[in-house]
Simulated assay, not measured.
Amino acid sequence: MTRIRVLLADDEAMVRAGVRAILSADGGIEVVAEAGDGREAVELSLLHRPDVALLDIRMPRLDGLAAGAEIRRALPDTAVVMLTTFGEDEYVARALSGGAQGFLLKAGDPRELMAGVRAAAEGGAYLSPQVARRVINELEGGRLARASAARTRVAALTAREREVLGLVGAGLSNAQIARRLHLVEGTVKSHVSAALGRLGVPNRVLAAIVAYEAGLVDPDAG
């Protein structure tokens, strides 16, 4: 079985040890490198090319948000997941706009950590429940205006791209979408990339929000 290769970056050694212990309990996940600051995280990512870069936000030399953006630009196949004690809206928005595919709080359930890493590695996205509630509440605040704008945006997609986008919004990975639509995974990846490009969003999380606002998400699709 192929293991999910993870780079772990946090400036506190004890935190790194704890996170490594949690991830090591999952036989399908391997921590291949550890970094103590953001610049080292970028350098080690370029060296090891991990499947997932798990980054703290507040780190010396280069913070996790900037490091994650650099990693996404240099290694588009490496998923970035933020792991932090800070859940403020500003950090969530900056992380997602920078291309992060997940946002996890250190105070969360250890199972969330493993689920988030697995979801990101499989091409999906994951928000801790606390963060997800905050995002949904924000969406509800201007729901009608957002829905109208989202429907206009998705109108530019092909019928197949809209179908795939709806499944992305339901939280399915590329492999799950491929099985659902009887397509090869590479074709699904192409549809997802095309949809992100047409919508002008950098990652699946923001694409999923557009799908949700446009009414494309079937609650029974997950």
Results as ranks from 00 to 15, higher is better:
Leu8Thr: 10
Ala9Met: 10
Asp10Phe: 07
Asp10His: 03
Asp11Met: 06
Met14Asp: 14
Met14Glu: 11
Met14Ile: 14
Val15Met: 11
Ala17Val: 09
Gly18Gln: 04
Gly18Trp: 03
Arg20Leu: 08
Ile22Trp: 02
Ala25His: 09
Gly27Tyr: 03
Gly28Gln: 15
Glu30Leu: 13
Glu30Val: 14
Val31Thr: 14
Gly36Ser: 13
Gly38Val: 05
Ser45Cys: 14
Ser45Lys: 09
His48Leu: 06
Ile57Ser: 05
Met59Tyr: 04
Arg61Pro: 02
Gly64Gln: 08
Leu65His: 05
Ala66Gln: 12
Ala66Phe: 00
Ala67Tyr: 07
Gly68Asp: 07
Gly68Cys: 09
Ala69Gln: 13
Ile71Asp: 02
Ala74Trp: 01
Leu75His: 02
Val80Glu: 02
Val81Ile: 05
Met82Tyr: 01
Thr85Lys: 01
Glu88Phe: 08
Ala93Gly: 00
Ala93Glu: 15
Ala93Arg: 15
Leu96Ile: 14
Ser97Asp: 15
Ser97His: 14
Gly98Gln: 08
Ala100Thr: 03
Gly102Leu: 09
Phe103Tyr: 15
Leu104Ala: 09
Leu104Glu: 05
Lys106Leu: 11
Ala107Ile: 11
Asp109Gln: 07
Pro110Val: 11
Arg111Trp: 08
Glu112Leu: 15
Glu112Tyr: 12
Glu112Phe: 13
Leu113Asn: 04
Ala115Met: 04
Ala115Phe: 00
Gly116Lys: 02
Gly116Pro: 03
Arg118Gly: 04
Ala125Met: 00
Pro129Met: 11
Gln130Tyr: 07
Ala132Asp: 05
Ala132Ser: 12
Val135Asn: 08
Glu140Leu: 15
Glu140Gln: 06
Gly142Asn: 15
Ala145Lys: 14
Ala155Ser: 13
Ala159Tyr: 00
Arg160Lys: 08
Arg160Pro: 00
Arg160Ala: 12
Arg160Met: 09
Glu163Arg: 12
Leu165Ile: 02
Leu165Lys: 01
Leu165Ser: 02
Val168Asp: 03
Val168Arg: 04
Gly169Ile: 06
Ile177Val: 14
Ile177Met: 04
Arg180His: 13
Arg180Ser: 13
His182Ser: 15
Leu183Ser: 08
Gly186Asn: 12
Thr187Asp: 11
His191Pro: 01
Val192Met: 06
Leu196Ile: 10
Gly197Cys: 09
Arg198Met: 12
Leu199Asn: 04
Gly200Asp: 05
Pro202Tyr: 08
Val205Pro: 00
Leu206Ile: 12
Ala207Ser: 02
Ile209Asp: 01
Ile209Leu: 13
Ile209Ala: 07
Val210Trp: 04
Gly215Arg: 00
Val217Thr: 02
Val217Tyr: 01
Pro219Ser: 08
Asp220Gln: 12
